[in-house]
Simulated assay, not measured.
Amino acid sequence: MERFWKTDSADTPMVLVHYGKLIANLDDMAEFAEASRVKLRPHAKTHKTAEITQLQRERGAIGITVAKIGEAEEMAIRGCANILIAYPIIGHSKLKRLLALAEQIQVSTIIDSLEGAQALSSFFASQNRRIDVYVKVDSGLQRCGKKPGQEAADFTRRIADLPGIRLIGLLTHAGHAYGASEPHLLEKIARDEARSLLDTAALLNQAGLQVSEISVGSTPTVKISGSVPGVTEIRPGNYVFYDMTQVRLGVVPMERCALRILTQVVSRPAPDRIVTDAGAKTLALDRGAHGVEGVSGYGLIVDYPAAEIERLSEEHGVVKVSPADPIQVGDLLEIIPNHACPVVNLADELIVVDDRGLRDRWQVIARGKVK
């Protein structure tokens, strides 16, 4: 595979993004959304940058999704005026911040508990305002959300008329797709993802309650669940870069991966071992996503795919290599990470390159915004 970095020197470790590959990924998903007649509301947790958010909006995204209020605040400052916070907002301090955002931009959030719904309702009603909400449905990840079908429908009916909130839809995230071992299992998870919402919506409709948005997420499933009639919105995140987890799942070939870590060999203490300056604080410790371990090592070294990044300490990557590999201290290596999202969150900036070399530097503005 062609290397992203063209020169012999760099202040490593660096997170590189190939502009051409990024644009191809953005265009591809935008074209899918348009052809499927669904709204594109990408999750910004993957890239956390104003520049990529703008590129997504230019390609038809109606807004963005984020995980935390801190991410929404950073994006709102930079002109993003339609944001879904796909996370339960619990606690008075966070409700105050949510209100401040709602006074500036169009913002929505999720609910999956009566306690959370009542707190949200009481707070916004006291301010003579209403906040748009989706009910979170658990399509199989077993994280947040009500069970699809009767439980989710009963909950939705119970909270629909609460003051201070406006029910706009149902939402789910099929993150358990990252554990799929075969393509047919991935397809089943994706179809179940859509059906979990559509079946719940059908029960609501029978009870005289309609919701306008049926929102699905997850990059591995989005082109299946997003094509099911009745789905109105998709929220993929990882698609902007892709990574080795997506390659393992068969979502894309390795050539579609737009993000790499540039690292330098700092030691070769044994013929079969090298050490790089990209450790856990650069590569993260994921061997997959959502706690699923589906790949070996901690990323793929582009020029030496048989080498294995066996272990990481904070600032060291320990790599098993063949004694015949001509790797020397000072060499630059490129790594496609297992999971791009935490890698970006660990970086101050993304170094944007194209086929001619360095193109730009993009600040990771939402880095560490976990509140």
Rank of each mutant, 00 (worst) to 15 (best):
P42W: 02
H43D: 12
K48H: 07
A50N: 07
A50V: 10
E51S: 08
E51R: 12
I52A: 08
T53I: 03
Q54R: 15
E58Y: 02
G60L: 03
G63M: 04
I64N: 03
I64L: 15
T65F: 00
K68S: 11
E71P: 06
E73K: 13
A76F: 08
I77V: 15
R78P: 02
G79P: 12
I83F: 01
I85W: 02
A86F: 02
Y87E: 03
P88T: 10
P88R: 00
I89V: 14
H92E: 14
S93N: 13
L95D: 08
K96Q: 14
L98E: 11
L98C: 09
L98M: 15
L99M: 11
L99S: 14
A100R: 12
Q104R: 15
Q104K: 15
I105F: 07
I105S: 09
I105W: 08
S108W: 07
T109G: 04
T109C: 13
I110G: 03
I111H: 06
I111T: 11
D112H: 08
D112K: 01
L114G: 06
E115K: 15
E115V: 00
G116C: 03
G116A: 06
A117L: 04
L120P: 03
S121I: 09
S121C: 09
Q127P: 01
R129N: 09
R129E: 11
R129M: 15
R130F: 09
R130W: 01
I131V: 12
V133T: 14
Y134M: 13
V135N: 02
K136M: 11
V137R: 01
S139M: 08
G140M: 03
G140R: 05
L141N: 04
R143S: 10
C144S: 07
C144F: 00
C144L: 12
K146T: 00
G149N: 06
Q150V: 14
E151G: 01
E151M: 14
T156F: 12
T156M: 09
R157W: 00
R158G: 07
I159D: 14
A160V: 12
